[in-house]
């Protein structure tokens, strides 16, 4: 009975958002690509507060985090969406890697356990997304299975996607290399840390929302 009621409420709120034309925008990608740094940048710019803690150690975000009612205003246009920051998706997690980062064994094991759960949750949430920004580390090899699996799953679900190559402020960053890896997608270069390319990203979000609303109809 409780489940039926929960389902009814879920459907009710889903329909409510649909009517308002609000979309759920997910941030997906491998660990340490800069998803939370980007989420913080967006939230700081438009809500005045950050979303979560970013760190150089992988799997800092181990739970799905949501900020509702973010409104971007540009050239007289308005765009309201919910931003969903997800844990980085990985095919392997080794607690010993956390120990190498200076953690105690118990803490490292706990972090690894939470990280595995985070990956499972991030994949489960895919079905709830209306549009997704895939945040790739522009300094790293883009031909990884995690990147291919994420993009393949979005394609299979017909979820509109925007690819961003992050960390463009770093010397090693190579936007052309990322673009060459995914020629069928538009890839834009940004630095969530220094705000480079962020205006271009906000511009693209309007297009992404259009596609998301078209898919919802």
């Amino acid at each position: 009975m409780i489940n039926v009621f929960k389902k009814f409420l879920n459907r009710f709120f889903k329909d409510l958002f649909k009517e308002k034309g609000q979309v759920k925008l997910g941030l997906y990608g491998p660990p340490n690509g800069g998803k939370t740094t980007l989420a913080n940048k967006v939230c700081k710019d438009w809500l005045g507060e950050e979303m979560g803690r970013a760190s150089k150690v992988a799997h800092e975000t181990r739970e799905v985090q949501i900020k509702e009612q973010i409104t971007i205003k540009r050239d007289g246009k308005e765009l309201t969406f919910s931003l969903v920051d997800t844990p980085g998706i990985a095919t392997k997690i080794d607690y010993e890697e956390f120990i190498k980062s200076g953690m105690k064994e118990k803490e490292a094991k706990g972090r690894a356990k939470e990280a595995t759960k985070g990956v499972i949750d991030a994949i489960k949430w895919l079905d709830d997304m209306d549009a997704v920004i895939v945040v790739l580390d522009g300094t790293k090899d883009p031909y990884t299975q995690v990147n291919i699996t994420i993009i393949g799953n979005l394609e299979a679900r017909n979820i509109p996607v925007l690819l961003v190559a992050n960390k463009m402020d770093l010397k090693k960053a190579d936007l052309k290399h990322v673009q060459a890896a995914f020629p069928q997608y538009e890839v834009i270069g940004i630095s969530a840390k220094t705000s480079e390319g962020i205006d271009g990203l906000y511009e693209k979000l309007f297009e992404l929302r259009k596609k998301a609303l078209k898919r919802k109809k």
């Binding site: 998706i89 990985a90 095919t91 392997k92 997690i93 690894a112 595995t116 759960k117 990956v119 499972i120 994949i123 489960k124 895919l126 299975q145 995690v146 699996t149 393949g152 799953n153 394609e155 299979a156």
Partner: peptide
Amino acid sequence: RAEEEASLIQRTMEEI
């Protein structure tokens, strides 16, 4: 399939 790859990752995480 893409969905199977995602499920494989999920199942892998459960087995770590």
